[in-house]
Amino acid sequence: MGQGRFVDPHQVEITLQDGEVWTAKADFILIACGTKPFRPDYIPFDLDNVFDGDEIVDLTRLPRSLTVIGAGVIGVEYATIFSALDVSVTLVEPRATFLDFIDHELIEEFTHELRDRNVGLRLGVEVAEVVAEPTRVTTRLKDGRSVTSDALLFAAGRMGATDSLALDKAGLTADHRGRVSVEPKTMQTAVPHIYAAGDVIGFPSLASTSMEQGRLAACHAFGLEPPPPPEFFPYGIYSVPEMSTVGMSEEEVRRRNIPYEIGIARFRETSRGHIMGLNSGLMKMIFSIKTHRLLGVHIVGEGATELIHIGQAVLNLKGGIDYFIENTFNYPTLAEAYKIAALDAWNRLIRS
């Protein structure tokens, strides 16, 4: 393992941990260095109770209370994980909403879960100052309120880990967030023999899509023709409870002026949900009124990131509501929610 930096467009200098320096030459180079947490100057990270998204995993003890600044994917995941560990959590976000790429009805259900677990939400308010002391951290907000906790996690954004790569030596530049631009079909940067993949190129910043991007880059570099990527890929948020989504949200369907109907299933309506003692969890399916094709699936609850793949397959194979109504699902499983939601949608469709 070592630290790499460009010498020129075809050469990379690698400094190993023991100080030894190697130079590697290549016809093709792939940049996949990932990201690092954004660390603004007004956050006192050098203290023992103030953490970024990478440092929080090295906690030596569990705090009794935690303030999380930033309600993006990472902030929400950590906030709910600590809440599940009986830590008192307050989530602070300058925007009035959060996770806006997720279907709004799903976020409403998720927000209800957070409030039910006594997670404090401070939405639509900016941080004025963070004052850290040895035993507590006070976050003062611009609306005059403040939040005091044992520890603070700052999770408001990440930056491409490109500042030490000497990109200029390769003829490349990064944007203000350290990200590298690529041609999405080939993963080529502005220098054709240099590729980039993963979080360093920005959205969607998923491990699953990053692997596919790397495969596309390798295939293109060595003259192979990979199949076109599927139109829809699943997005998983490993919060407590999990959320996962594939296809169009209800808001996107409306923007496209597509006549649609929805079907809802709650996990407590399934036999498996009864067995597991689930009181929450929701699956939402969206269908075209004209063609009955599936347009999107959105799930919040137990196993959401596993369940989503059934919807993903049907969506990318351009299937419709008949698949879910006419097929048999294992009993008892949470996957039965697909049939329940499809029947709910069918009852609405026949009345349209």
Rank of each mutant, 00 (worst) to 15 (best):
V246M: 12
V314L: 00
L294H: 00
G247F: 03
E231Q: 04
N279H: 03
E252C: 01
G320F: 09
R272N: 01
V253G: 05
G301T: 02
I299M: 09
R266E: 08
G311A: 02
F232Q: 04
G296T: 13
Y260W: 15
L282V: 15
S280V: 02
T328K: 01
T270V: 06
G247Q: 10
P259V: 15
I286M: 14
Q312F: 00
P259L: 11
Y238V: 11
G236C: 07
H292R: 15
I258G: 12
E269T: 03
K284V: 06
F267K: 11
I262S: 14
H298N: 15
L307C: 04
E231K: 12
A265L: 09
E231G: 04
G273C: 10
G247M: 11
G301K: 12
Y238W: 11
A265D: 03
G247D: 05
I264K: 14
K318V: 04
I325Y: 05
P259E: 14
S288V: 14
G236Y: 03
I264G: 06
A313F: 01
E306Y: 03
E251T: 08
E326P: 11
N330P: 08
Y238D: 07
K290H: 13
E231M: 08
Y331A: 05
L278T: 03
E306F: 00
I264C: 10
I299L: 13
R293S: 10
R268D: 05
V240W: 09
M283R: 14
R268L: 04
V300M: 12
I310D: 00
V314D: 00
G277S: 01
N316P: 00
F287V: 15
Y260Q: 14
T328R: 06
Y238S: 11
F287S: 15
G311L: 02
E269P: 09
F324R: 07
I275V: 11
E251K: 14
R268W: 03
F324L: 08
N279R: 07
F329R: 01
N330Q: 11
R255G: 02
P332T: 07
R268E: 08
I299D: 02
L315S: 04
M276V: 02
E252Y: 02
H298S: 14
M283V: 11
A313E: 03
G303S: 06
I310K: 01
I286Q: 12
G303P: 01
Y238E: 07
H298R: 14
L307I: 05
T245F: 11
L307T: 02
D322T: 13
G247Y: 09
L295F: 07
M285A: 15
G273V: 12
H274A: 11
F324M: 13
H298C: 10
H298E: 10
G301S: 05
I299T: 08
V253S: 11
G311Y: 02
R272Y: 03
L315F: 02
S239Y: 10
K284P: 03
R255S: 12
E250R: 15
G236D: 05
E269N: 12
A313C: 02
G263W: 13
Y331I: 09
G319V: 05
R256M: 04
E251D: 14
S244Q: 06
H309G: 01
M243R: 12
E269S: 10
I325S: 07
T291Q: 15
R256W: 01
F324V: 08
V314G: 00
M248P: 02
L282F: 07
T305V: 10
T328D: 01
I325D: 02
T328G: 00
V253W: 12
